[in-house]
């Protein structure tokens, strides 16, 4: 059986049939690029020794339009996103699995590009993709490619990080500029195209988290503000912990370009997606030490204390605006869409 034509070929129904065409695709694409001993065994599952401590598991379905955007693509995103979900428990990620739903007619060249990008992200982060699955749906029943990744990790002893642990008085730390990913995606979306040097912040945060818990094992909450942005993450944490939040607009790291894009399209940067940032809630006495450590990590040079947790039964997130007024930072209603009025 010949290898698939990665230059001109497209996904056919047979690639998901489980027959020889499927096997060839898996061998010549997935196994070749993800290359690791567990995957090489060729089983329908990966077996590995259980380590001591608490384990975490998370799963994330990735659908993104466009598939390729400045600073990344659906492949790298599906690796970083799931590693981050594992890391937000304070865990060291160990393994990933990946399921691909491919649409009939999807160019093999694009698929290969995505898989190579995914493999690179996996190699760079040191977290292997050890098992996976591929299915093909008829043309018109998918959007090119959907990728679901599952991650497994282990939490070091003595670390208890959860969204319900925020306490009044705690400091709220943000690891860097907000809205880069959302801006990069919008800039390449059909009909909205605008020129910008902003690229997605897509990155794996597990080494940052490891460094953080080393100096501040008392961190209470960690969460990556992805879809729905910083505003949504703060509201989630406030509700989960039964507290309020007070933040300062002037303290939130925001690039001029992201602000410009938001003004132009009538969007609010607080709701713009991020893929390489985290929000950390930590007791005040550890905040200074933690922030200093974060500033030494390449992914958190602009980390800042943006506010504090308050006692509030209504679980409101309020913001002192740069203008001097106060406003409620609410949950996002529906999806954030560009507006003309």
């Amino acid at each position: 059986m010949n290898n698939p034509d990665f230059k001109h070929g497209v996904i056919e129904m047979a690639h998901g049939s489980g027959g020889r065409t499927s096997a060839t695709l898996i061998e010549s694409l997935f196994v070749r690029h993800f290359d690791n001993p567990l995957l090489q065994q060729g089983n329908d599952q990966a077996a590995f020794a259980v380590t001591s401590g608490r384990m975490v598991i998370t799963t994330d379905a990735h659908v993104v339009s466009p598939l390729f955007f400045p600073g990344g693509d659906i492949g790298s995103l599906s690796v970083h996103g799931t590693i981050n979900d594992v890391a937000m428990a304070g865990a060291q990620p160990l393994y990933l699995s990946a399921a691909f739903i491919l649409e009939e007619g999807f160019p093999l060249a694009e698929l290969e590009r995505i898989v190579i990008s995914m493999a690179r992200a996996s190699r760079e982060t040191g977290i292997p993709v050890v098992t996976g699955d591929t299915k093909v749906v008829e043309r018109g029943k998918g959007d090119g490619v959907f990728i679901t990744t599952t991650g497994i990790g282990v939490i070091p002893d003595g670390i208890h990080i959860s969204g319900h642990l925020a306490r009044p008085g705690d400091a709220i730390i943000l690891s860097g500029y907000i809205g880069d990913h959302g801006t990069a995606i919008l800039s390449s979306r059909e009909g909205l195209e605008f020129g910008t040097t902003i690229t997605s912040d897509s990155a794996a945060l597990h080494t940052l988290v490891a460094a953080m818990i080393e100096v501040a094992p008392d961190i209470r909450c960690l969460r990556d503000p992805t879809r729905g942005g910083l505003a949504t993450t703060l509201n989630e944490l406030a509700r989960q912990s039964g507290v309020g939040m007070h933040i300062e607009e002037a303290a939130i790291p925001l690039r001029a370009e992201v602000r410009g894009a938001c003004e132009l399209l009538g969007l609010d940067p607080l709701y713009m997606a991020n893929e390489g940032k985290l929000v950390c809630i930590v007791p005040q006495q550890s905040a200074g030490r933690l922030l200093a450590r974060m500033h030494h990590h390449p992914l958190a040079r602009q980390a800042a204390i943006i506010g504090h947790v308050t006692s509030d039964e209504r679980n409101l997130v309020v913001m002192q605006t740069g203008f001097g007024g106060m406003r409620v930072v609410d949950w996002l209603a529906g999806e954030q869409l560009p507006r003309i009025c």
């Binding site: 001029a256 370009e257 410009g260 894009a261 132009l264 003309i340």
Partner: peptide, 29 residues
């Protein structure tokens, strides 16, 4: 109503009556 933001004209094409404007580094036709 009517969101309109000030942006600087960076380039002009008189033939097509189009311009490239910029707003803090964001460029838009």
């Amino acid at each position: 109503m009517c969101l309109a933001v000030p942006a600087r004209v960076e380039a002009l094409d008189e033939a097509t009556a189009m311009a490239v404007v910029s707003l803090d580094g964001i460029r838009k036709e």
